[in-house]
């Protein structure tokens, strides 16, 4: 059985937003008990991330790390830019995930106690984002 829908997610501004509950509700609605759930985001400046939910700092520091690894073009100062140390912003999107796949067990997301699913809005010019969820199984 396959259950699929595309949801519009409201604009939350730059940052990481947990969407685990939304995914859990969707899996419940699908009535699929065992299988997989695939998430796909239709954007090149927002991505998906499985992150730690125990400490808020983890989420913020992951974003800070990525910003350092691949700075936004509007944050790059000329010196860094000239030294070629900076990776274009697009690289950050490439390193992050556009699609995530998780198990479905007992009609729920089969993920760890401290794992959460986040939508990571990487653009200062955030917008509504389209997310397609596909639950496959029986």
């Amino acid at each position: 059985m396959v259950y699929q829908d595309t949801l519009q997610l409201a604009d939350h501004g730059e940052g990481a937003y947990e969407i685990t509950d939304l995914i859990a509700d969707f899996i419940k609605e699908s009535k699929i008990r065992i299988g997989t759930c695939q998430l796909f985001i239709h954007s090149s400046s927002a991505s998906l991330l499985i992150g730690d939910t125990a400490d808020e700092a983890t989420k913020n520091e992951t974003a800070a790390f990525m910003a350092q690894l691949a700075p936004s073009s509007d944050n790059i100062d000329n010196k860094i830019n000239a030294s070629m140390d900076a990776i274009p912003e697009a690289m950050r999107y490439a390193v992050a995930q556009t699609s995530l796949s998780i198990p479905v067990s007992n009609g729920r997301p089969g993920i760890g106690v401290w794992q959460g699913i986040f939508l990571w809005e990487q653009s200062k010019h955030a917008a509504e984002r389209k997310l397609t969820i596909t639950v496959t199984g029986e």
């Binding site: 499985i50 992951t62 794992q115």
Partner: peptide
């Protein structure tokens, strides 16, 4: 020194970063 999430040691936050940079799921 950029990492503050170090409750479980100096390898704590780097472990989360390494996880985000690699994969939690493979198909």
């Amino acid at each position: 020194s950029m990492f503050r999430h170090i409750d479980e040691g100096p390898d704590d936050m780097p472990a989360h970063v390494r996880t985000v940079l690699t994969q939690s799921s493979l198909s």
